[in-house]
Design a binder for these strands. Sequence first.
DNA 1: AGCCTTTGACCAGCG
DNA 2: TCGCTGGTCAAAGGC
Length: 475
Amino acid sequence: MSARPPPPPRPRLALPPRSVAESLFTGAGDASPGPLTLASALFPSEPDGGGGGGGLSSSSGGASGASSFTQLLIGNLAPPPHASHPQQQQQQREAEWGRGGVARAGPALSVAPPAGAGAGAVFTVPPGLSPSGLLDSPGLLFSPAMVRVRSFISWTFASKGGFGMSHQQVLAQVTAQASHSPLRMFDHTEQQSFSAAPTSSNAMQHMNSAANMAGISDMVPGTTNNENVAFQSAEASQRYQVNAPVDKPADDGYNWRKYGQKVVKGSDCPRSYYKCTHPNCPVKKKVEHAEDGQISEIIYKGKHNHQRPPNKRGKDGSSSAAEQNEQSNDTTSGLSGVKRDQEAMYGMSDQLSGLSDGDDMDDGESRPHEADDKEIDNKKRSYYKCTYAGCNVRKHIERASSDPKAVITTYEGKHNHEPPVGRGSNQNARNSVPSNSSQQNMQNSMSSSQASLTRADFSNINQRPIGVLQFKSEE
DNA sequence: AGCCTTTGACCAGCG
DNA sequence: TCGCTGGTCAAAGGC
């Protein structure tokens, strides 16, 4: 009944051992550019010609204002999308799967990137299109590929800074990283926000243009080894997406056995079912692929009743992100109880790590981002305060003792001001928002659970980039 | 040999 | 009750 003729084999690409774009991160064995360097490269602070000053300022001046990752996410947000939105429908489906004891997605998640990713197509950001505009383009929501790109850009943009790099270079990195499957994380509100954001024709055009230039469709084969994995909470309405090898979804550190595959209605792409191989472990996960076969979501069900299996390094050539993260978490005292609980609940905590604080470019907070990894090391248990007058937001950055490259960023408080103009928010996108009040509202709505996205250091190709989203509940 | 994936069949929930 | 659909089982084969 449910069985259907075997679907055509998924397109695969023989990827080169190392892409050019990848080399951008790895360099020639030298230190990779720091987060800020890359981020700045992505969106140089230069006036950037048109687009209303789209680029984020790469200025390191703490008081000069900036946009945090969170603000990037919410900065140009609009009211929630219609319930009929595809992603909401998806969420509903996932929520349904969750009935009967599905573990709710916690605010933390990380994934191991795919083993071998190749360089995808390179796309450029059209002049005048600011990062925010690019990221907030509603159009991204309608294509899994675009979602992937957007999320990736969000992550990349937020986590990297840089100078002296062209848009193309940065975007090449973006593309490459998309293939390298760093964490993709979507907060439900974020999705709603940008999906409902007024469509800026320019933004859309730019986005389409960028997408076309990016060769998104062409990227499909190139990213076949990746998949976007969504870890969603039906209750918390939070979604997390990451890239992971299609054939081996989200190396989260646990061992999974595929026990079924089904082609879901309305899609030619199969849905795979996995069980944790640990004896008596009830955890299952469902992996869905988008119609283009590129993007999928992973929905976890249940809770691991065991420790993550030992290092699999010997098996796949590299330790899983989860493992790395586990150590980080184990040594992280800055994690909120909520986070810990959720991590424990989902058995995902261990997946966390490889954080970096390149995220927020931001929030007008003083930024430690300029610091390279060495500096970060030297700044273990560092505190930063938003420099905006009257704003009491603080950021705590700590480095996991077990992983020199892992940094955990924790935000405390919420900003009582809008992102400083010229940094973070892009004017185009901003203009596309009906009013600042809505933006502020969104910001406020997010304030209770500020997210901190960090990135792993890419200097070591063997170290998989891992993103960590950390929410901190505030009363 | 053990573990995994594949895949057709079966089962249960729902309208 | 029936058909549809999603989820699961389990044999077979591959690595």
